[in-house]
């Protein structure tokens, strides 16, 4: 045993040296100029130097683009560079919101945008409600005294780490015309279903696959919340002979509520931005039945024959406003939870 340990540390040392050597060089390379700068500007200004790279990245890839996005949404044409684009004011927004009847996407001038919003709303409604429900049930089950809890937690959690493309391909393979699910349906005497031809089924599987892939994440947050509940509360309730149902509704649920709120808002934020899995799974089809708002933006800006950057930016701004409100809610919910 001791011998094996020696060998293991030996390999570890080698590995550490291989990794550590370039890192040490990097450190030396940065050390001299940074120390020289410190001698010039003094310690008190050093935090700004440490913040500089990060702020530069944020500036270049988040802040500037955010303002540019707004600027883009006020221009027309198909040029990529903003200096070559004609200013059109609020025309893009007018175009997006030009509807006879907001409840009916077909009556809108840009019907694909409204179809995208409509689809996203349907998706979020089912995905978030069922995901929260199943995350809660799973967390409750995992929080019980079960053997091998670590294993069971891993069972429900591992899809979170799979890439959306992998998740979509796994399920696509199951759901194909000649896939194993249809083989099963036929073997129990039912008819074959073409899942990707029926709009309802395509939406169902979009919701299902997305829940399958992400449920573990929310389960974990709820599980942490459950485990933070004081055990003496349950002991006291048991001594009083309180029924389990009552314990659940009077103790567990109210104390878990701050975590539930965080989970709901996080799921909403992710749900509004749904794209990856569903895009690979259904391609937005059949027709536009599972085309969501992000895919609308992606198609409008990058894949359509005419690349309409202005319209895509305007739609992004609408999405951005929704996400802004949701994120503020999330921060408030998180703060409330952590203060409790």
């Amino acid at each position: 045993m001791a011998h094996a340990d020696d060998k293991a540390t030996g390999i570890g040392d080698v590995l550490q040296n291989v990794v550590a050597w370039p890192i040490r060089i990097l450190f030396k390379l940065i050390d001299y100029p940074v120390t020289a700068i410190q001698n010039v500007i003094g310690i008190r200004r050093m935090p700004w130097l440490f913040l500089l790279p990060n702020l530069a990245f944020f500036g270049m890839f988040v802040i500037i683009p955010l303002f540019m996005n707004f600027a883009y949404s006020l221009t027309g044409g198909t040029e990529l560079f903003i200096s070559e684009r004609p200013y059109t004011g609020g025309e893009q927004y007018g175009f997006l919101f030009d509807c006879d009847n907001y409840a009916d996407p077909i009556s809108c001038r840009e019907d694909r945008f409204w179809k995208g919003i409509f689809n996203t709303a349907v998706f979020i409604f089912f995905q978030v409600s069922f995901m929260v429900l199943f995350s809660l049930i799973t967390a409750l089950v995992l929080n019980r005294e079960i053997r091998g809890r670590g294993f069971w937690r891993a069972v429900f959690f591992f899809p979170v780490l799979l890439s959306p493309v992998v998740v979509a391909l796994i399920w696509k393979w199951i759901l194909l015309r000649d896939g194993i699910l249809n083989a099963f349906l036929i073997s129990i005497g039912l008819d074959r279903i073409l899942f990707f031809v029926s709009p309802e089924w395509a939406m169902f599987w979009a919701v299902f696959v997305s829940i399958w892939a992400h449920m573990g994440f929310y389960t974990l947050i709820l599980l942490a919340g459950l485990q933070a509940i004081q055990p003496d509360l349950y002991e006291a309730a048991e001594m009083d002979g309180t029924s389990k149902e009552r314990v659940f509704f009077r103790i567990t649920l109210p104390l878990l509520w701050p975590n539930m709120l965080v989970v709901i808002v996080l799921a909403l934020i992710k749900g509004v931005q749904v794209f990856d899995e569903v895009y690979v799974l259904t391609g937005g089809g059949p027709g536009t039945a599972t085309q969501f708002i992000v895919q609308y933006i992606y198609n409008t800006a990058f894949t359509n024959q005419v690349q309409n950057f202005g319209l895509a930016s305007a739609a992004s701004m609408v999405l951005g406003v929704v996400l802004f409100v949701l994120t503020l809610t999330q921060l408030a919910a998180t703060r409330r939870r952590d203060n409790d």
Partner: peptide, 20 residues
């Protein structure tokens, strides 16, 4: 400011980041 950038996921700024 750092927390604020949380509110701007890449899906919102696809076009301008593409330009950058």
């Amino acid at each position: 400011f750092v927390i604020g950038t949380l509110m701007i996921p890449i899906t919102v700024i696809l076009v301008p980041v593409y330009l950058v």
